[in-house]
Design a binder for these strands. Structure first.
Length: 416
DNA sequence: TCTGGGGTCCTAGGACCC
DNA sequence: TCTGGGGTCCTAGGACCC
């Protein structure tokens, strides 16, 4: 059996740990710039607030129902995530950390509802984060079991045993299946496939033709045939992207250079962290698509490095070169980003005959760069091109303290 | 006024090779 | 009548995930 542990309303739950009076109250966590809803408490879901909804469209509801808002606080969520994962790893031998709030667990040694409930309770007691655990023969079935555990059980745990599969699938909406998104969901319903059971009974060749190989795998998994294994090593990323929307529109090329320089440096440090180099860099800009009367421009350009690199200086000058090519004067840009591609391990680099950079020296420089920034804080050492302006940075008006990752934010308790 | 960020995989088609 | 066969690599676009 495979288990899926999934934290309930994860970001909201993290915020509630230090604000227990918000239990049973409607709470939202907002995206960067406090623009969209990215996490909702159950109470907020009941008010009809949707995932991804722009905040300004539900402002009246927020005021009327006294919904509590939080800006994102990723250091806090990241820290809680690793605490939860550590507990899971102490209870189960093989754990695949699937996302910030989800993990697949190998229950092949012993799968019982009591064991699942024990783990769930331990996590809640030790971290304050509520979690649900679902068990099934395959990852896809475990996902379904988790959905039921979360929605229909009190204990927060559920085992999808063989004799239940027929009935459960018959009542499970096809668009809720793992790997079936909105497009496929609509297409399936249009073809008369409404439940997971309908999907399971479709002809495999039709599924393969219309939903490609991955659709076929999902179908097999519903039949109990394992197609996705638990993966224990986290594979290095094949693409690394750093992008942001700005708090206001920007047309100033000098400022855009600073922004692109900052994005490139962030991406480069992610690249070095996983001990990789990249062969290509893409720079893109977007104007504000919600202002159709403004001049629209969505340029993107990819430049190749002569030799795969993870050197911030080399990468930044390439990125700025790219920006200078695509930038159009007079356009108001709302978002920009940098994507690194052609990622290879730093030990497998094809050297170039015409390379004129002193690689060993630069490597040492980057190592010191990273070390200082790790010890003193991000961007303590930076390239001059990164600048010091901050007017493009995010609006975060409701950010909670970093209770668990910053000494100055640690809670103080007065004992009388 | 105001609309997130970071990923993966698959497929088709074009350019190229012998 | 009749115009080969078998590959690789790369990229863009489209689907999906959290």
């Amino acid at each position: 059996m495979i288990g899926l542990a999934d934290c309930n309303n994860f970001y909201v739950s993290c915020e509630r740990v230090f604000k227990p009076h918000l239990k049973n109250k409607p709470v939202l966590v907002l995206s960067n710039n406090d623009g969209c809803v990215i996490a909702r408490s159950n109470e907020a879901k009941l008010l009809g607030i949707k995932m991804g909804q722009p905040v300004f469209k539900i402002r009246h509801l927020i005021n009327k129902e006294n919904v509590k808002l939080f800006s994102t606080n990723f250091p806090l969520y990241g820290d809680f995530s690793s605490r939860v994962m550590d507990i899971l790893k102490s209870e189960v031998q093989k754990v695949e950390v699937y996302s910030v709030d989800e993990a697949f667990l190998d229950f092949s040694d012993s799968a019982s509802i009591d064991r699942a409930i024990f783990i769930k309770n331990k996590i809640e007691k030790w971290t304050g984060i509520p979690i649900s655990i679902g068990l099934g023969r395959t990852k896809s079935l475990a996902k379904i079991a988790n959905y039921i555990a979360k929605k229909y059980t009190r204990k927060g745990a559920f085992i999808l045993e063989d004799h239940l599969i027929q009935r459960v699938l018959g009542n499970f909406p096809v668009e809720e299946l793992w790997g079936i998104g909105r497009r496929y969901g609509n297409m399936l319903k249009y073809s008369g496939v409404h439940t997971a059971l309908d999907f399971k009974n479709m002809s495999s060749s039709w599924v393969k033709k219309n939903l490609s190989i991955n659709g076929l795998r999902i179908q097999k998994e519903l039949k109990g045939e394992k197609c996705f294994d638990i993966e224990l090593v986290n594979r290095p990323k094949k693409n690394i992207c750093t992008s942001r929307s700005f708090s206001s529109d920007i047309s100033d090329v000098i400022l855009l250079r600073e922004i692109i320089s900052n994005f490139t440096n962030l991406a480069a440090s992610k690249l070095r962290k996983q001990k990789s180099c990249c062969n290509r860099i893409t720079v893109f800009l977007n104007t504000n698509r919600f202002k159709p009367n403004d001049r629209q421009h969505y340029p993107r350009i990819t430049l190749n490095f002569p030799t795969a690199t993870n050197d911030s200086i080399e990468m930044t000058s390439m990125a700025i070169k790219a920006l200078n090519i695509v930038y159009r004067k007079g356009c108001m840009y709302k978002k920009a980003g940098v994507i690194l591609q052609g990622i290879v391990s730093q030990t497998e680099i094809q050297a170039s005959l015409f390379d004129n950079i002193d690689r060993p020296k630069r490597k040492k420089l980057m190592q010191s760069f990273d070390k200082v920034n790790m010890l003193i804080g991000p961007d303590s050492v930076r390239l001059a091109s990164q600048g010091f302006q901050s007017r493009w940075r995010h609006k975060k008006e409701n950010k909670s303290p970093c209770y668990t990752t910053r000494f100055s934010d640690v809670l103080q308790i007065n004992i009388n």
